[in-house]
Amino acid sequence: MATITVFESVTLDGVMQAPARADEDTRGGFPYGGWAAPYQDEVAMRFAGEGMSREGAMLFGRRTYEDVLGAWATAPEPNPFTEVLVNTPKYVVSRRRDTRLAYPNSTLLAGDASDTVAELRRTFDGAITVLGSGELVRALFGAGLVDELVLQQHPLVLGTGTTLFGSSRVELELQRTVPTTTGVVIAQYAVR
């Protein structure tokens, strides 16, 4: 059986919308895209690289899959992430069965996220990492399918934007913290 780890960048008020680029996700008129970029440092990159070096698979919602792979597949070389993102097995959750997946090593999980990911979790042997994919993550927490949560908590309050957690109660046990040089605290939690 697989273990599912959610890896997210959030502000102190829980916003996870559009951390990387201004045009990443402007839904709802969100004006603060790219808010996490000024906080990147060697500590955060090393931590992310540590996670990316683990064998396993990645799980995305369709929108995040298209955005993340689109951005990194066209990023200038060399960078530490493109090869891993392209070569790692990827599972993409979409409600639409006709969704086309543009990148290699990608498998569509069409239908309800709770059902399709529960089946993947039962049949996949290894680690599965979810990047971004807020709507998917909220559904997975609601269905009790997340084993671990890694938050990059940024010292920033935006007051608006899509937040990570919905209405599901989630109890966490702190496993590890890593402070960065820019005030970001990376917190690794087991989900109880």
Rank of each mutant, 00 (worst) to 15 (best):
M1K: 14
D13V: 05
G14R: 03
A18M: 05
P19F: 08
R21G: 13
A22M: 10
A22D: 11
D23F: 12
R27W: 12
P31I: 11
G34Y: 07
A36G: 00
A36T: 00
A37S: 04
A44G: 13
A44N: 09
M45P: 05
R46F: 07
G49E: 12
G51Q: 13
R54Y: 14
G56V: 06
A57T: 07
M58I: 02
F60S: 07
R63D: 08
E66F: 03
G70W: 01
A71Y: 15
W72M: 08
P76H: 09
P76R: 11
P80M: 13
E83W: 11
T88L: 14
T88I: 15
T88N: 11
K90G: 02
Y91E: 00
R95A: 04
R96C: 00
R96A: 12
D98A: 12
D98S: 11
D98M: 04
L101S: 06
L108V: 04
T116G: 00
A118T: 03
L120G: 08
D125M: 06
G126F: 06
G126L: 11
A127N: 10
T129N: 14
T129L: 15
T129P: 01
L131F: 15
G132C: 12
G132E: 07
S133Y: 08
G134P: 01
F141P: 00
G142K: 06
G144R: 10
L145F: 09
V146F: 00
L149W: 04
L151N: 02
Q153R: 15
P155I: 07
L156P: 04
G159A: 02
G161R: 02
T163M: 05
L164S: 08
G166R: 06
V170A: 05
V170L: 07
R176I: 07
T180R: 03
T181C: 00
T181G: 08
I186G: 01
A190M: 03
